[in-house]
Amino acid sequence: MERGSLDRWSIRFMSIIAFLTSLIAIIIAIVLMWKSFPLLQISTIQEIVLGSIWQPLAGGFGFFPFIMGTIWVTLLAMGIAIPLGLFSAIFLAEYSPGHIRESIKPLIDLLAGIPSVLFGLWGILVIVPWVRDTIAPMWGVSTTGYCVLTGGIVLSIMVLPLIISLSDELFRTVPLDIKKASLALGATKWQTVKYVLFRKTYPGLLAAIILGFSRAFGETMAVLMVVGNVAKVPTSVFDPAYPLTALIANNYGEMLSIPLFDSAIMMAALILFIIVVIFNILSKLLLIRIQKAV
């Protein structure tokens, strides 16, 4: 074939594949909506989201306990990970000498690559006994150790690398001149961080935190292994919970045997999908705002 037409055809071919891959997210959304539609015909969205009766055999599909399970675990995990991650990132970007930063960064990248099952294993071996034997007795509570707190701790370790590496990079984009100007005016390093760095990077930090949230929402295996999986709204951090992801993972093998059960599981996936997509779009919008500002 002549060079010119070979070029045209390969470019055309590549852009067709590109178009097809852009459909992945859309196809997922369509399948989820199509499969969860039958459930909407027998009950309203309000009943599904706020109902707390979960009896698939009797046709009771209330997701409230699962949604609350997801929210409890995620909020706890982010409550631990945000301060730890931000302070660590400030330390790495502003305070630590170069060689310490160079040796800590690879460790954090390494952590990001560890499979979630191994975090679950670690949770069962280390955090569960710790919560059961040390933390819970301190508060005068008895628990099996498989509870919201354990899930939150394990999850926080998993989202930390994301928050640390994103915010570390953000802090390093702040021009040295501005920092020096602040220091020259007599501000301490912390004051520079507080009044210059934070002010300059807060949309990006917010984007990083939102990304962390969406990662935490979707995490399945590690949480499923340590959180106890009891379908009841937790009332304290020492209660077991049953997040949406665990509900899907534990049930989609047998979802065909009970009427509407598959539809309910897909509804759980759809709820999760909507939350995660909204969070991702939010963080993308924030990042676009930064790019424009720079």
Binding site: T21, I28, V31, E219
Partner: peptide, 26 residues
């Protein structure tokens, strides 16, 4: 548009990929 939709796909939890492919398999 393609970049954004790929970014969204990156953020979808893997359990949802599993559930959707399983549905298609069924």
């Amino acid at each position: 548009y393609i970049r954004t939709s790929l970014d969204i796909a990156c953020g979808i939890p893997t359990i949802i990929y599993g559930a959707v492919v399983f549905t298609i398999m069924v």
